[in-house]
Design a protein around this nucleic acid. Structure first.
Lengths: 205, 205
DNA sequence: CCTACCGATCGGTAGG
DNA sequence: CCTACCGATCGGTAGG
């Protein structure tokens, strides 16, 4: 017996990632020691190193898994072939939901990506760029006026700002829930973006 | 001669804070060593400790100075006694400007506040809460319907989300500038917030 | 899967 | 007796 990996091996790897993501999100990657991760997992540091080669491997797996999930959500929504309006509403709702389920991984992704080596960081950032590009494409379709296409990028970033920032202040046990926030974000964005003027082509000139 | 502190003492303290803020913003507080701060300042670590008691004093001074500036902007705009609409436009414009000038301090404030001891952290967070409350008050005045006052807080946080997130992706040498973003944020928010429905009291029920 | 360690570097401080 | 620093090293702890 004990040939190959134990049957619980993959479960342990997942459990470790979840503990590590929580600690990295709370204290930051650099300030979290492998001893703390091991203790949170109820194992020795040596055992922890049995599952992951080094500290950076934890970070890379957390970020990769999160970005991969986000790209899967994009693909799923895109293949529904909804009109742009409904597609953006669906994307916002699904992303708020996804971020809420993966709050720790999301904070790690947004704050600790700088601690990865260049190759890993670029792969993760490429995934993020594809996600942002998918949002920007839908938003550009909602504002088909030719010269206003330049607004798609900043509007996309403002939308991500609202959603990303939500998870820095939404308390898991607070009055406000992410289910309540999703329609507020949607209303605010859909109500507001037709009012945005192209800089230099505004009504005041 | 040489009674009291050298004439350049306060200038040195300011210069050190500026270098430390840049390093903390780039690498994170925990991952930045006092040796790196000293090197960036062109002095020995022992000299650095002449100006600041310890590493945490750098963090606290950066955060306190930034929050104090933000509270000063609030006070300045409030005493102009503008109508709510113009007051919020002014606040948005001034904050985007202020964040752009203090981009490093702002990132340190939003990411590294967790590394302060409890007393310092609570004082800084109290300052931030007063700033947020000032925005929420103006936004509540813009939506005077009684039951909709509950929306002031989430709308305020979405507005801060757009502005705060801007400085995570705006490149100092990029095509988009903060001067161009301020009116886009303003248009989006003013265009959108009248469209936001109170949860549970929406038009669909 | 553990105890016992390593090379290095951490934040902070000594004497001069 | 003060300040403004220096070269060297302290006690502990990091990742591995």
């Amino acid at each position: 017996m004990a040939r190959g990996r134990s049957p619980g091996y993959d479960d342990q790897r997942e459990a470790i990632l979840s503990h590590a993501a929580r600690l990295f999100a709370q204290r930051g990657y650099a300030a979290t020691s492998m001893n703390e991760v091991a203790e949170a997992c109820g194992m020795s540091k040596a055992s922890l190193y049995h599952y992951y080669r080094d500290k950076s491997a934890l970070l890379v797996h957390i970020a990769d898994a999160h970005v991969t999930r986000l790209e899967a959500v994009i693909a799923e929504v895109v293949q529904q072939n909804l009109p742009p309006d409904a597609r953006l509403r669906s994307l916002i709702h699904r992303f708020v939901e996804e971020y809420a389920m993966a709050q720790d991984a999301h904070r790690v992704l947004t704050e600790d990506v700088r601690f990865m080596n260049e190759d890993d960081r670029e792969r993760v950032l490429d995934g993020q760029r594809r996600v942002v590009a998918a949002f920007a494409t839908v938003i550009a379709e909602l504002r088909p006026e030719t010269e206003e296409a330049t607004l798609a990028k900043p509007l996309t970033m403002l939308l991500f700002g609202m959603i990303n920032w939500m998870f820095t202040w939404l308390k898991k046990d607070g009055d406000l829930t992410y289910e309540a926030m999703a329609p507020i974000v949607t209303d605010l964005f859909f109500g507001g973006f037709p009012a945005v003027q192209v800089p230099g082509a505004g009504s005041k000139s």
